[in-house]
């Protein structure tokens, strides 16, 4: 997929090693400022990267003119670069302060329930660090359904975590798309983490996102309905004031149930609930929603 290649380019081993070097010599706040210069390259020379972020920018800032959109694209690159830098800082052992919202409700649910739970994440803020922080807080093993190329980056991001044995990766590239791994984990009453913002197959529904119809996958809700467990959206934003302060918010518990609607649309209202939460975060932190693909493009998923 075109966008995977782009994100790989921004997150390759050389880039991470370089950021680590900057971090070591300049510290986290200076290093985050340094990203502004680096990202000029992407704005000026990586037209494909600019093109990939434009659908989001144009939907999030519908009244922005051409130059303003370019400025917003630049800010998106900077924010994305800073997010990667913070992941590198995390691996290097930097400490972060955290502020939670709605965590108690989720922890209480897990303590009082014997069912598993599906956590739905997005390419938003420091989503990789959501994983680390969830491992710290949830008292159950966490399984991540992910592509093999994401696996190595996430493992890298988690490698100094003492609870890393609680982490299991379910690769999405087997003949059944990792679905058996998800069933097994939920049957063990564990937590399964699924990215919910990118439709790569035809398992998606049309929902309203930033005032237009967009395609989002329904896999997380389908699995939860089959296994009779809840779905919880999780977002990790960086504080706009302090780079080393994370704002981790858990959404409302969603209990998806099969309805009489056709297979694709039976989970639509649940997907919409998650997408509304994502849209609210995009309103609050517009430059931390790393939507380097076009969910509004009708044939995007079908072409993959």
């Amino acid at each position: 997929m075109e966008n995977s290649a782009l994100s790989e380019k921004r997150g390759n081993a050389f880039g991470i090693a370089f950021f680590r070097w900057v971090l070591r010599w300049f510290g986290i706040n200076r290093a985050c400022e340094f990203v502004w210069f680096i990202c000029l390259y992407y704005l000026l020379f990586d037209r494909q990267a600019v093109k990939s972020i434009m659908p989001y920018v144009e939907h999030r800032f519908p009244h922005a003119g051409r130059f303003k959109c370019q400025w917003h694209a630049y800010r998106m690159f900077v924010s994305n670069g800073q997010s990667m830098l913070i992941c590198a800082a995390n691996v290097a052992g930097y400490s972060f302060t955290k502020e939670f919202s709605q965590r108690k409700a989720i922890l209480d649910y897990l303590r009082n329930s014997t069912s598993g739970m599906v956590i739905i994440t997005s390419h938003f803020g420091n989503w990789q660090m959501a994983m680390k922080n969830m491992m710290d807080d949830l008292e159950r093993p966490i399984n991540f359904l992910m592509r093999p190329e994401h696996n190595k980056h996430v493992r890298e991001a988690l490698k100094h975590n003492p609870d890393a044995e609680k982490l299991h990766v379910i690769p999405i590239d087997d003949e059944f798309g990792g679905m058996f791994g998800v069933i097994e984990a939920l049957q063990r009453n564990e937590v399964v983490c699924i990215m919910g913002d990118r439709a790569v197959t035809d398992r998606h529904v049309d929902v309203d996102f930033l005032d237009a119809t967009a395609q989002f996958p329904f896999t997380a809700f389908f699995m939860a309905a089959q296994m009779k467990c809840p779905v919880v959206p999780v977002f990790v934003a960086r504080s706009p004031e302090k780079h080393n302060h994370l704002l981790i918010s858990f959404g409302e518990l969603i209990m998806p149930q099969k309805s009489a609607a056709d297979k694709k649309n039976r989970f639509k209202r649940f997907v919409q609930q998650y997408v509304d939460a994502l849209a609210a975060k995009a309103q609050q932190y517009p430059f931390q929603c790393y939507m380097f693909h076009d969910p509004w493009h009708k044939n995007d998923a079908d072409n993959n």
């Binding site: 990792g178 679905m179 097994e184 398992r203 699995m223 089959q226």
Partner: peptide, 23 residues
């Protein structure tokens, strides 16, 4: 059929025949 259909088949086999093909 696709992988999500496979999930529905697994649930069906568990409910109808008490077997778990997941392992």
């Amino acid at each position: 059929l696709d992988s999500l259909d496979a999930v529905e088949i697994v649930v069906m086999l568990q409910r109808q025949f008490g077997i778990s093909p997941t392992d």
